[in-house]
Amino acid sequence: MNSEILGVILMFGLTVALAIPLGKYIAKVYAGEKSLFDFFAPLENFFFRISGINAKREMNWKESMVALLTINLVWFLFAMFILMCQGWLPLNPDGNPSMSPHLAFNTAISFLVNCNLQDYSGETGATYLSQLVCLMFLQFVSAATGLAAAAIVFNALKERTTDKLGNFYNYFMKSLTRILLPLSIVVAIIFILNGMPMTFHGKDKITSLQGDTVQVSRGPVAAMIPIKHLGTNGGGWFGANSAHPFENPNYLTNIVEMIAQLLIPLAMIFALGFYLKRRKLAWMIFGVMTVGFLCLTIPNMVMEQHGNPEIAKMGVNMGAGAMEGKEVRFGTPASAYWSIVTTVISTGSVNSMHDSFMPLSGMNQMLAMMVNSFYGGCGVGILNFFIFIIIAVFISGLMVGRTPEFLGKKIEAKEMKIAVIVTLLSALLIKGGTALACYLFAIDPVSRAAWLNNPGFHGFSEMLYQFTSCNANNGSGFEGLGDNTPFWNITTGFVLILGRYLPIIGPVAIAGILANKKFIPESAGTLKTDTLTFGVMIFAVIFIVTALSYFPALVLGPLAEFFSM
């Protein structure tokens, strides 16, 4: 077997092997049991005391969501201020300017919602202060926000009737101090040992072999990159993201970055099983997600390894696969694997340029973001999947003529309405945004809407990808799109914020409403939701919903490009 493919298989296997014990640990943390990092308790209590928060007070789902929104609103204002003033704030050795209002708006929201879409280049568009105090801070807290929301849902799905679902701030703080921070420190040490820069000095001047003088950007990179991946954020220190040799120095760091970004989303599935003591349910969810993940990954790896037939016609040897836009040190299989890993979860970091992938590979990347629940983002992936579970339970109940129930709670019209609103919102934001961009491009493609270098099918894919990435809070892009303009910064800013909070509030609302209902013990008449049959049902629901929502748009972009080759 090709050693590169074997490497990818081993990488995925290792990630799963690490995710199971981590899931057990996360379940313990949220259940309030004794764990390894309990020594952080005094620090947590200090923050609670100075904030005037009683972390032991139980909240209902509405109070939890108000708390979530309130702290996010404060961070939004804070991020806007820092980004718009970074030019005259300290820690700016390279003398980079402040961001324009629309770029600051886009960047603040992008990092706030765990997306990290970057319409700027880190080397010239941000300062050390804004990268560390604002952007890296948001990478930690946005990931913790998603994890805390998932913890509330876990608590709501317990076999009991209650409206008390724990304390949001408690879950939030524990996600930071006991999950994200310790893991980030371990990963940062690995990166530093492998040559990733960690310095506050400005650009370095080097002389190349040809005798040219080159200014090389650097900075405290190793501090940011661990949480960039562990928190499924994806925002890089440098514009080239993990294709930059300082952000991803060698094949070992490439492995560590790939494992890091997949680790917590996978662990959250197992954490659900351990927390609810329903391991079979967790394995069913893992199975459905993994089948979806492999359906996207395997074709991508095959297509990229086969190379680009249009380039082959020019007489270029395609023995190494389609290498345009890929790093020679990583090769096609690891780049193709990364491209799906980073899009099924909401990281959006890249070690190769997605714009250069084969048309159907690009389609798979978009499909991964359109589904957004094959593992999904930090905490929010499991919330997105929960929506599909609710729809599948409801449809299954109708099919077999039984009252739809999930974990002993009846699924009724109210929960279905919320699930449908959340599901349809994604299609509306993606297709509405793309339609608007296409309309403006059709009116004035030369001056005011001159953002496409590829005006054909691929140009449509670039615009579709951008809105898909924003709605999924992913952050990767087809970088042929000129997106640092008021139109793109503002419209994608709105898609980012709408695509984040309603899909969190919706599932938490469903879970909170279910928790308040009478618990019905399982009986012979209960529809089993931890079986292979139900797993197939969920997969079918995801397939049908995604196909109905997005197939026409995909036909106009990547599919048309594929058939025109």
Partner: peptide, 30 residues
């Protein structure tokens, strides 16, 4: 121009958050 755009975008962000606060009650009563 920059000041006007800054104020407008800050206001737009605040309106979004206001909508999210309202969506909590909306989902509760739907």
């Amino acid at each position: 121009m920059e000041t006007v755009m800054t104020i407008a975008l800050l206001a737009a962000g605040l309106v979004c958050f206001w909508l999210f606060y309202k969506s909590i009650d909306f989902f509760d009563k739907i």
